[in-house]
Design a protein around this nucleic acid. Structure first.
Length: 927
RNA sequence: AGGCGCGUAGCUCAGUUGGUUAGAGCACCACCUUGACAUGGUGGGGGUCAGCAGUUCGAGUCUGCUCGUGCCUACCA
């Protein structure tokens, strides 16, 4: 093996080998365990959020697979209607073509082409993450099977009147020319103005001042509203006013909606261009005057001078004209929430159109109950509140989009506009007995992308067919996703799946936090702080990183700043950490219920951890390959205290990892593996194995060497299996070499990923061995402490004396002398009986036993006095604290006996340690 | 306006049902290239657990308030 772990060397081939061997497919044995991947955009690329979620899902899947479950990780991609269509349209635009120039059919061909060309990127990136998804079952939301499911669902909902067509105000995106759902509108505060406009009464008896943030919409006003109880305006209710600029007269109406405290207490009512005004208009039977075209330019309902103007141009013109007419009373600075389309970024208009809706109320009810009664459980649980809050106030879902890329709505219209819904035009004709001369035209719209996503767990398993997969793997076990799509996706999945399968889509929902950069900022292209998981795996040069981050920015003027920041943050570029280190980092950061700041230094630390495992394996192989590892049951085997100890600790580590993974505490699982591997196996066990393996057979028998080799190999082999779900590549690479030494037959078609997951055995935990090793560690650490504090060279061999020891200490010394000599680098240990006096020394305590390192030329008296003083002071502080506690009758009376006993023990230990050290101090002082 | 979080070492974070002297990694200081590993070893320094009050024998942990901070939902023209 190479001296240094190099992920690029080992990660390249394993994935392909696993995939080709069909290891990712369900085994067919055991209880089913299934995760449906949140389908990424087919033409997208992997970002940190994916890397994060995929790591967690793969860890679960590999864990369950090794535990013997029949696991399926269902993979697939989403057609991502608007996003994909926009990309292709942008490409066409670069050639000077619009989609309308091409026509629907040709355009769709282009999109499919683009999907074929670029759709492989995301799937190959998923592979790089090591994700053990079943590629043989890969699905796409627009493939035939899923499209069929979409159609069936649409038709059934329509027939049950749960899908309907209606005319109402929707959020209209004037750039994309489509309706979007409430969820796709992002409202953020922006600086704007509040214009105060004077509307004169028709009878000339006075005027009203109306305050508005959108003066241009006054061209579509149908009324002015005041609060019915507002004394200032009560007498004006029912009167008519002259609407400036448009020559119309509109009434003054009274409506509770108006807040008399806000603005002037008079509100202009524009039912066709404001959601609230729309409701007011309905209550008062006001006419809807639509003044916008689909582009949000002014249409023929506006006075002639404004026609054709863009809405913002029109606003300027209206303000100017009002000013000229002396009707503009005041302009005030005003911050307001501006609704923008999440894809286009342009201001969305409330716009009156015909759209298709899902009536969600009856679907929402069982979906709420499923979470209330625990059929579906959110992890962490507090997300259930978010879910309930939204579901209990859910609005009908606008599912039609005026796009071309997507599932076409299976509805046809005759020339009278009558709607027929069915699987095809033929079916519609025969079902409704339409004569051939009746002309039918299919609805031009497509469905919201999330409509097909909502069917994901069951449509991918073959629904509406009653497939074996559906029966076996549905409901799926857990959905791993971000909180940002709880409404978009999770809630809608729950509703649709309950409706069509009678089952929940998943039993648990694990909600991950958002991945942020080191400064806690959201990663975004426009901020130039995006980390590409592939760059963390493979590494990237600074110049390439800068180029990548500054390429094709929406705001090119940001490029300079982004380059600057990037150069400062990554002066050396990003080193290659490898997939395993990235995955381990992700797991260790994945504590529940909070966002994650991605910290590069953590990744570096875990890359080092991989190197540590790698080198531990080198050591083990070096000592076991071509050696007798005790596999022959005929041979005598002797296990050392270290062997028994590490086996005990391994059981405990296994238990920790398993219970952590069972409760989605990936951070705890990672930590347990890290600590066991580094702090116990490497730091202590490997060191303890050295004296056994190198000693003369008169000191360490053949059977003992065998036992230690066997333990070295077996523990490592188990540790690899324990780590495999988090670190699939390095564990496989090393396992292939180690497994035969551990007596596990492996061949080319075998893999660690098919091996059983470790099962802790209580009977293998040896408490005596644990106590003995603690003693050994205590002695060694005590001596090392003296070395460190006294500046004694680490290589310098020391003589030491033990005094005031018990018979147990004596036995341990007799048994473990060799460990102590080697690990503490001693040349001799002298046991002193109670009556014997140690030479002048630096002293450490292990329990009541004293360890003495003679000063003789090595140790500075004053330094030792200082060190003792420091220790004694520490003990004094503790003594005071414990004494106070025990002197408090409230404590001794009320605290549980065990707690009190513990405190008493503490008191005794501290007191005796303190007096022992004080004695030493005294002795030194009189010297 | 409502809701949900967060605030623990210089930084990023753990800390189960309240119970040793509050932990880890990175960073820092000193010493060390010893035969797995300098992507390493050994030793060490560093925290008023945001603040205040309360409950309790005992609070990082429970309650209330305050401050700071992040997000979500709904919105007043």
């Amino acid at each position: 093996m190479e001296k240094t772990y190099d992920p690029s060397q080992i990660e390249a081939s394993w994935y392909q080998s696993w995939e080709e061997s069909g290891f990712f497919a369900p085994s067919g044995d055991g209880t089913a365990y299934c995760i449906a991947i949140p389908p990424p955009n087919v033409t997208g690329s992997l970002h940190m959020g994916h890397a994060f979620q995929h790591t967690l899902m793969d860890t679960l899947i590999r864990f369950k697979r090794m535990q013997g479950h029949n696991t399926l990780w269902q993979v697939g991609t989403d057609h991502a209607g608007i996003a994909t269509q926009m990309v292709v349209e942008r490409q066409l635009l670069a050639e000077g073509i619009s989609r309308h120039d091409l026509g629907r059919e040709k355009f769709l061909e282009k999109v499919w082409q683009w999907k074929t060309d670029s759709g492989g990127a995301i799937t190959s990136q998923i592979r790089r993450m090591g994700s053990s998804v079943d590629w043989s079952r890969e699905r796409f939301t627009m493939d035939a099977g899923l499209s069929n499911a979409v159609q069936e669902v649409f038709i059934q909902l329509y027939e049950e009147k749960l899908i309907y067509r209606g005319q109402r105000l929707v959020n209209w995106d004037p750039k994309l020319h489509t309706a979007i759902s409430d969820l796709e509108v992002i409202s953020e505060e922006e600086a704007g103005h509040m214009w105060h406009i004077q509307y004169d009464l028709v009878d000339g008896s006075g005027s009203l001042i109306v305050a508005t943030t959108r003066p241009e919409t006054m061209l579509g006003d149908s009324a002015v509203a005041v609060h019915p109880d507002d004394k200032r305006y009560k007498h004006l209710i029912g009167k008519e006013i002259n609407l400036p600029l448009s020559g119309r007269t509109i009434p003054i109406i009274a409506d509770e909606y108006v807040d008399p405290e806000f603005g002037t207490g008079c509100v202009k009512i524009t039912p066709a261009h404001d959601f609230n005004d729309y409701e007011v208009g309905k209550r008062h039977n006001l006419p809807l005057i639509n003044i916008f075209t689909v582009d949000a330019t002014l249409n023929d309902n506006a006075p002639e001078t404004y026609r054709g103007l863009d809405r913002f141009e029109a606003r300027k013109q209206v303000v100017k004209d009002l000013e000229a007419a002396g009707l503009l009373i005041k302009v005030a600075e005003h911050t307001l929430k501006v609704p923008r389309g999440d894809r286009s970024g342009v201001v969305v208009e409330p716009y009156l159109t015909d759209q298709w809706y899902v009536a969600v109320e009856s679907l929402a009810k069982p979906a709420i109950e499923a979470v209330e009664n625990g059929d579906i459980e959110f992890v962490p649980k507090n997300w259930e509140n978010t879910y309930f809050a939204w579901m209990r106030d859910i609005q009908d879902w606008c599912i039609s989009r005026q796009l071309w890329w997507g599932h076409r709505i299976p509805a046809w219209y005759d020339e009278q506009g009558k709607v027929y819904v069915g699987r095809s035009e033929d079916e519609v004709r025969s079902k409704h007995q339409l004569r051939p001369e009746v002309k039918l035209k299919q609805d031009a719209d497509v469905l919201d992308t999330w409509f097909s996503s909502a069917l994901w767990t069951f449509s991918t398993l073959g629904w509406p067919e009653k497939t074996k997969e559906l029966e076996t793997f549905h409901p799926t076990n857990v959905l791993v996703t971000g909180f940002d799509i709880i409404f978009f996706w999770v809630a809608r999945m729950i509703m649709m799946t309950l409706k069509f399968t009678g089952e929940v889509p998943f039993k648990q929902v694990y909600i991950t936090g958002l991945i942020r950069d080191e400064d806690g900022q959201k990663m975004s292209k426009s901020k130039g702080n995006v980390l590409d998981p592939l760059d963390l795996i493979d590494g990237i040069e600074l110049e390439a990183l800068v180029a990548k981050r500054t390429q094709s920015l929406m705001q090119p003027e940001m490029a300079k700043k982004i380059a600057q920041v990037t150069r400062k943050q990554f002066p050396q570029g990003i080193p290659a950490f490898g997939t395993d280190a990235l995955r381990f980092t992700i797991c260790s950061l994945a504590s529940t219920g909070r966002d994650i700041r991605f910290d590069m230094s953590r990744a570096e630390g875990y890359r080092n951890f991989c190197n540590k495992i790698w080198n531990a394996a080198r050591y083990v192989l070096m000592n076991t390959e071509n050696e007798d590892c005790g596999l022959n049951p005929e041979d005598d085997i002797e296990l050392s205290v270290a062997d028994r100890w590490i086996i005990s600790r391994l059981q405990q580590a296994e238990q920790s990892v398993i219970s952590a993974l069972d409760s989605y505490r990936f951070d705890h699982a990672a930590q347990a593996i890290y600590e066991f591997t580094w702090n116990e196996y490497c730091d202590w066990y490997l060191e303890l194995s050295k004296p056994i393996l190198t000693a003369d057979t008169s000191v360490s028998s053949i059977a003992a060497k065998r036992g230690t080799r066997r333990t070295l190999v077996k523990v490592l082999e188990t540790l690899l299996r324990l780590s495999h779900p988090i670190m699939p590549f390095i564990s496989e690479e090393i396992w292939q070499r180690v497994a035969p030494l551990a007596g596990i037959a492996n061949s080319k078609d075998s893999s660690i990923m098919l091996q059983p997951y470790p099962v802790p055995e209580q009977s293998k935990i040896n408490v005596n061995a644990i106590a003995d090793i603690e003693w050994i560690k205590g002695v060694i650490i005590g001596i090392r402490n003296i070395r460190g504090e006294m500046d004694i060279a680490p290589g310098k061999k020391l003589p030491v004396y033990f005094s005031h020891g018990s018979t147990e200490d004596k036995t341990r010394l007799d048994n473990y002398r060799n460990f102590l000599l080697t690990l503490a680098k001693l040349d001799d240990i002298t046991w002193l009986e109670q009556t014997e006096q140690a030479p002048t020394s630096a002293t450490q305590l292990v329990g009541d036993m004293e360890i003495h390192v003679p000063m003789a030329g090595l140790i500075d008296k004053d330094a030792e006095i200082n060190r003792l003083n420091k220790e004694i002071e520490k003990l004094s502080r503790e003594l005071t604290r414990v004494k106070d506690k025990l002197n408090n009758p409230n404590f001794t009376d009320k605290a549980p006996e065990a707690v009190v006993a513990k405190e008493k023990q503490k008191l005794e230990a501290a007191a005796s340690a303190k007096s022992a050290l004080e004695e030493k101090l005294q002795a030194l002082r009189v010297l």
